[in-house]
Write a protein that binds this DNA or RNA. Structure first.
Lengths: 198, 198
DNA sequence: GTAGTACTTAGATATATATCTAATTATACA
DNA sequence: TGTATAATTAGATATATATCTAAGTACTAC
């Protein structure tokens, strides 16, 4: 549900400590310990807030030895801000209506094309249904995380053997972008959404 | 403190019920009862959320007989979204530093130019100090409320007898805007801020 | 392997807040 | 003035969450 994502975005920013963290990170990447120092907080507290920011895809992390460095994920921050305004202004009526009717299509695709163990029986041929299935899978990836091609393949294989086709579809419909063998989720605002396809 | 305003903006939007309210209001104004119906909530709950949205200046209210109509305050919503991104991206370092040093100037102006009863002894001649005094006064106005000229005059007279000069300064430094005798606060982002004046 | 460092998880506590019902206030109108 | 309608306030409750300490995990380096 689109609305929840926007709520989570705002929840992530609705805390002075997290805003201060982002402010510090806007000057460059920092590791957890440094953040705890600068913010006068315990390390677990930093972990707690970092998790929230990561869930909302507002920061990225990179591990070097046993130190984790955090940095901003500016595209996602902007994309969410934009999506929030879009939600309030651009859409309006349709939005509310959209949910129940289209919901049923989504549910029928999920129950018809996915087995009980969560695997995709076959790739839907119909465009709209294919998008629903792809989105369902892609949402299981972590936003902000950089995946190698092997990791993406292994991930997709959990759902379907033809990982090459699905990986290509991910790129084609802008669920992910690829840069020299590295894969990363796009912000949901960039995805080709089945519920806008007429 | 700038940071708190941003936090409050995001807190206001960090709740699904309030987002749904804004969504409904994006299609036009509604009264409390109608909102309660559409959202399947009790009226006190609507009052509760409306208060939060009003505090963050995201909605405006208008009373007709004993019915209160709510509508969006789009400029403020956009201004806050913008300010939030500015905070994270544009500024960075200075922001944190800015606070303590400049704080003392603000405090000295407040204690030197304002009497214990809260009235302004005299309008500061120095530009920066004048802005501090004006901002202090203007912050006592409700965001999103439309004031008549008489109301503004009466309001200013609580602080200083020369209401005409101060009213003119409010407009000049973009604290407020005027449209055929109606006055309304501008979003803080539009104010000429003393702490950015070099 | 053992020790050290950085981070995460678990569990406790205090505060905040979303929601409701019941009581109160404000306004209109007969 | 009395009654009806809409809104607000008060008070109760349940849930969420920010923070801490203590214990556990992951990785490095010797």
């Amino acid at each position: 549900m689109q609305l929840d994502k926007i709520v989570n975005y705002h929840k992530a920013l609705a805390d002075p400590t997290r805003l201060r963290m982002l402010l510090l990170l806007s000057q460059g990447e920092l590791h957890g310990h440094a953040l705890a120092d600068k913010l006068n907080l315990s390390q677990p507290t930093v972990t707690h807030h970092a998790a929230k920011l990561r869930e909302a895809a507002l920061i990225k992390e990179r591990r070097d030895k046993n130190t984790v460095y955090f940095k901003l994920n500016p595209e996602f921050i902007r994309a969410n801000a934009e999506a929030s305004l879009q939600l309030i202004f651009a859409k309006g009526a349709e939005n509310m209506e959209n949910e129940s009717p289209e919901h049923s299509l989504k549910e029928s695709v999920l129950s018809n094309f996915f087995a009980k163990d969560g695997r995709l029986r076959q790739i839907p041929a119909q465009y709209k249904k294919k998008l629903i299935a792809l989105q369902y899978i892609v949402e299981k990836l972590e936003p902000g995380v950089v995946y190698s091609e092997k990791e993406i393949n292994d991930f997709i294989k959990r759902f379907h053997d033809d990982f090459a086709t699905i990986r290509r579809e991910f790129i084609m419909h802008q669920f992910m972008y690829r840069e020299n063998g590295q894969y990363e989720l796009n912000p949901p605002e960039m995805w080709t959404r089945w519920d806008y396809v007429k």
